[in-house]
Design a protein around this nucleic acid. Sequence first.
RNA 1: GCGGGGAUGCCGGAGUGGUCAAACGGGCUGGACUCAAGAUCCAGUGUGCUUAGUGCCUACGAAGGUUCGAAUCCUUCUCCCCGCACCA
Length: 815
Amino acid sequence: MKLINFKAIEKKWQGKWEKSEAFKAKDGKGKKFYVLEQYPYPSGSGLHMGHAFIYTIGDIYARFKRMQGYNVMHPIGFDSFGLPAENAAIKAKSHPKKFTEDAIKNFIKQMKCFGFSYDWDRMLRSHDPAYYKWDQWIFLKMLEKGLAYRKKAGVNFCPKCNTVLANEQVVNGRCWRHEDTDVEVKQLEQWFLKTTEYADELLSGLDKLDDWPELIKAMQRNWIGKSEGTEVDFSVNDKKWKVFTTRVDTLFGVTFLVVSAQHPELMSLVTADRKAEFEKFLRKVKSTKEEDMDKMDKEGVFTGSYAKHPLTGKKIPIWTGNFVVADYGSGLVMGVPAHDARDWDFAKKYNLKIKQVIEGDASKEAYVNYGKLVNSDGFSGLNSVEAKEHITIALQEKGLGRKKIAYKLRDWLISRQRFWGTPIPIIYCDSCGAVPVREKDLPVKLPENIRFNSVENPLIGNKKFVNAKCWKCGGKARRETDTMDTFVDSSWYFLRYLDNKNKKKIFEKKKADYWMPVDLYIGGKEHATMHDIYFRFYTKFLADLGLLDVREPAKRLFPQGFIYGEDGRKMSKSLGNIIVPEKAAEKYGVDGVRLFLVSVAGPDKDFSWSEEGAQGSLRFILRLFEYFRNLKTGRSSRKVEHYMNKAIKTIAHDIECMKYNLAVIKLRELFGVIEKEEVGKSDLESFVKVLCVFCPHIAEEFWAKMKGKGLVSLASWPRVNEKKIDDKIEEGDKALDKIINDIAHIVKLVESKGGKAENVYLYVLPHELKNYNNKVLSERTGLDVKVYAVNDKDKYDPSGKSDKVKPGRPGIYVE
RNA sequence: GCGGGGAUGCCGGAGUGGUCAAACGGGCUGGACUCAAGAUCCAGUGUGCUUAGUGCCUACGAAGGUUCGAAUCCUUCUCCCCGCACCA
């Protein structure tokens, strides 16, 4: 076997694709298809196998759709703001811009090596002022619409990142980037985007996303966490405190209220005599680590205050407790120990009154089911469902309650106390307060000259940046030094690709209307409750601005699987099990790596890298080369035509369903047929076309060898000729395989008994004769095989085997 | 606790009512080639039985059920992975 210089082949075709602008997407022409892979963070370590995988998945689909005649949008860019570059820059006393741009160069080089069919003209980088200008512009629009606001709140702060985090970026009380670091709660004035404004649509929209995985939708539903209930006012010293409940039917069973220990106005409830005990309790709560929360006992302290029950007027003690979530509902809950497990525990522990108001056994534990009301004044006798309605109405009439929908979803905290991000376009004027930067003054650029220090955002010390003039009053002002969460950048990048050079507008509506929505979006599952919510939120907002018509960004979402090392563990430096795509491509060729990545399992499944498996893919490719080296075309038999058309048909379906592994199998099987048969030129072309979506470089090579017209990458997907599909041919082949097996078996038996096996005689029903060709049989069995029709009078049949012949079961005689 | 998804041969993984002892790849075994190794090619690879073959048996997490017929549908159970988690 000759060695094949894959690299030369790859370079050659990549050059031709680039030169001919093969993968350019043309606006507004014909039926479109938008394939998008999540744009990468350009890390210093370059493209890893996970990148190679996700881009291969997208590339296969893009190439497939392109060959099917779609006008394909397949862009790429870089999520180039973010912490790692900044940290690296601090370490090296350099500027993150340099780091980032070097990394991007490296990424581009590596991506081009993989032959991804991107329209590189549409490339964007989020750290480019021409890009983040529009981040700022959107922010101003949100501000204008009341969707961006500033508030002081207890926010999650990661001491390692040295910045606050969004709710979504806190995992089990720890930073999403630092599994070992507990987040601290700090009271800070921060900028928020009102995702909750769209909570309902974010939720209901999921029902229409049929091509999104159930898992992702379930996670989002859970994250949004809609509950319908009633808000009840309890008055304390003539001040109203709102309480949210989904079980207002148990209102008469309230025997205490519990305020969250983090409630901002908690101290106003604490009476003087209880202050000391209180502070002790609060200190304890504060020192409890998030990780212990789930094991934590419910604890609380009596505040000394009482509330008035809205319907009975009875005095109800107010406690504070460590188990009440501060920022859900109103951070205050009613305690109904008879019918709520948590309240039961609390009441038992502190000996609080338990009053049963729903029929059922509430003697040993809380009875939490719905049922008939008792002890509830005029509402007794109603069932829970009716009672909810009636009690809410009664409260409403008194102005002491109303229907209310609560969400777990929180507004998105976007302020980051870091340098390497989009500046928030706000200035603070002593007399005018927070003033938005005027649109014409955008972008607010990050300074090039900065000096990092280890404690704080270097923007704070940068006078040139900070000092500003208020455009309203002309007075002195200070520029906001916080930057935006990088998830802001990625919330709308897919729109900018469509018009990435537009200096006047964020993007042309006409273009967005043509290309949107993204038809296939490939990305990681880890974004289910972050990016995958944010980009939907942004799309809805931009649609409300009238910038585009669609309200959902992606028609189909495809979360790819995760690639583990050969040992089945996560690839990591310390385990030494990292497979670098570039290196792998040197061994197996780019097409070998691409093929292997989609061969093992469906692209949505996790799998482990395997050198042996990659070898297997390479083996197939080498076989292809061998075949095309001695290329001889002829005329396809009916058989070849059958397998060809059937394969094309099923492969197209498999690709459509993202079952690339099955498509590859069928391609291999098809080649197995081709290898052994005479094949017509156009059929062989079809084969190369199908091959091209997986292994574009070698496919081009073979195409050229066959003198195919133009580039196979731009050829049209082979049309299936249904008439050529004839399953009888396949049945015949199976019958042949079977008889060969049987012959082998009999030969073995004969020889094991010391007999000789040289001649084989087959007795076949006349209409099956065409399935059994004596030449083929002789070749495959290595014996002299003669085939007779059962009704052949001159047949040689010494032991009458032809008497036993049945349909599909020829008789066999061996001697 | 709630929600989502799994459990198939030595392994990775197909298969969602019959054509399934189960695609394809890997591994392993045997053979061809070779001085040899590698590569490549060919054959075999559940168990036991039976036999000049296409047969029987057992098997798709476990147990039941529906059906003429189940890896595939239903019920219950066990185990595994993932996400959320005191959201009132």
